[in-house]
Design a protein around this nucleic acid. Structure first.
Lengths: 331, 331
DNA sequence: GTAGGTGTTGTTACCGCTCACAAGACGAGG
DNA sequence: CCTCGTCTTGTGAGCGGTAACAACACCTAC
């Protein structure tokens, strides 16, 4: 910068002004400086600027990522929202669950001088491991609670579960099985709870439940067990807690000759881009990841800029009705 | 830091030594400093450190991301590889293709003082827009060439296309249609080229080709057109350039009563976690994203650390044979 | 007893930028 | 002609670290 200043015959401060598009500089001078910058191949140092202004305008996104549709979509929408707010996103994803490894990741993100962190920690165990961040800097929890004192934004999974139950009830189903997500995922528990509660409030007892791990395989296994279950005869619908498990489930049903939705209806959760093209087209619940990501970043930014703490926010999902659910009985 | 130094009764330099785990400090002193750090809630400033050492140890990842399986997987594996090499990943994704917007993104990544950039720009247009980065700092192109002078790492799509052709030939197919990806995607062209060339070298003329856009919808549309095509009668297999299009394609075939693989075999590309659970289970080609990401980062790091430029690298994919492809004729 | 390590700590000068303020030029108003 | 505000530019002091070197204590070897 001093070189540029010398080359343009001005002071370093004037160069700084030009770089920051200050309107306090004569156009002619701006020109001279600009030319000098180009000639010398000058690029301003963001690092030095950050140090001087004591802000980095960057947010950390720590996530425990597999190849899962949900977390991935979240990540993208958070990044987009952050950039819209003028922040950069430092991506830090922990793959394993090994405590030492997670700590290393956290240290890493702290070392990077991010101003705040969005944590996507959907399992309880993960949440526990990163909870300590909260007293280091502003944190927002996304899709998985981090504690009562941490702002929290998520898709409303309980509402999603209710939506499913309602839809199935409306279609006349009275014995509904469920393939849930892993029990240590808050989202999974909430989907299950919303579903079960809504059924009960309609006087219908929830049917048998299997816990899967979100994978198609686990859906398949649940399907196999369902087919062997004593109450299989009565079951007319199954709610899978995500589309992948629904897929595996349908594969098992198909293999056993139990047609969907002929013999049994199936509904999933997520609405991946593929869901509408499965055979049969899968009814499911769609989450508004963009809205969640945007809200999360907004909260983080608000608290960085001295705003008040906000209550937790749940974004309502929406039911997507397709052909894998059929009416049943006199319904 | 000076506060900590004062509180511990040492010089700032000693504090610095403690922070960096220098072995030149008496254990007793280390202790005193550590305690002071905790007491004052001190956290070192990475920014200041970066400025002083003139390194940021961070890489930019600019990508043009949709919800596509490929690019997303790449992103994750790049991040992981970067962290293994001691670098952080600045995620910058451009959603639109609007030139102004892309430029803003590029400026953003430059402003962040990254030491190098991995560019995931699979279409020619995208590649054109970001090519300018190359003379600003070290760049590695991933999954989409940026120019002859930019190191390039990708999955070997031509080999993938050949693999498909070989497999289909082996199974006795002689009239093979193709649903390709968009023509301005290098990957799409290469898959098509590998497939077509391999067929020709076996004396088989490639069948009709439709260009899709990777989406299930486009696969479906191609399927509809295929069914109406004069040569539909001869076609015994279709190669879809990704699994999503294969899914849409199969939906169209199914709807028309053309069984897969009974009437016609279908093979996809990507091997998403769901592919094996479709009905029928989809034969496909699996790419080694982790290997590509690791190689990309490795190249970037090598060139940052003064290593020699390396030739481009193509990682071979692998055929996954499942039940959507059947033997045909005397095969 | 003195020269010469070795281990530990302190001093000073940057890194590349911004901030607060000072300073010079210039036209307007009295 | 002098004073005052406005426009534009320059000056000096940090921001929070690291690097290079100096300095001091203490021990060993001759």
């Amino acid at each position: 910068m001093y070189d540029v200043a010398a080359a343009a015959g001005v002071s370093h401060q004037t160069v700084s002004r030009v770089v920051n598009n200050s309107d306090q500089v004569r156009p002619e001078t701006v020109d001279r400086v600009r030319r000098a910058m180009v000639r010398l191949g000058y690029r301003p140092s963001g690092t030095a600027r950050n140090l001087a202004v004591r802000r980095t305008r960057s947010l950390g996104v720590v996530s425990f990522m597999g190849p899962l549709f949900g977390p991935m979509s979240m990540l993208l929408s958070i990044e987009a929202a952050a950039r819209r707010s003028g922040y950069a996103a430092q991506l830090v994803s922990a793959h394993g669950l090994d405590a030492g490894q997670v700590d290393a990741v956290l240290e890493e993100v702290l070392r990077r001088d991010v101003e705040g962190v969005a944590v996507i920690a959907p399992t309880d165990q993960q949440a526990g491991m990163v909870a300590g961040l909260r007293d280091q800097l502003p944190v927002v929890a996304v899709e998985g609670r981090l504690g009562d004192d941490v702002p929290f934004v998520a898709s409303d999974n309980e509402a999603g579960g209710r939506l499913v139950a309602e839809h199935l009830l409306e279609c006349g189903h009275r014995t509904i099985a469920h393939v849930s997500g892993p029990e240590d995922w808050g989202e999974a528990r909430q989907r299950t709870a919303g579903w079960a509660n809504r059924l009960r409030s309609a006087g219908v007892e929830p049917g048998p439940v299997w816990a899967g791990d979100w994978s198609p395989e686990s859906g398949y296994r649940a399907g196999v067990e369902l087919l062997a279950h004593p109450r299989w005869g009565e079951v007319t619908a199954v709610f899978a807690a995500n589309d992948s498990m629904a897929l595996g489930l349908m594969a098992a049903l198909h293999r056993a000759g139990a047609g969907v939705p002929g013999r049994v209806s199936v509904i999933g959760y997520d609405n991946t881009p593929e869901s509408g093209w499965l055979q049969p087209a899968l009814s499911t619940v769609e989450q508004q990841f963009d809205a969640v990501g945007a809200a999360a970043v907004e909260r983080l930014v608000t608290s960085l800029e001295g705003g008040a703490a906000q209550a937790e926010l749940l974004i309502p999902p929406r039911l997507v009705s397709r052909s894998s659910v059929a009416r049943h009985g006199r319904g």
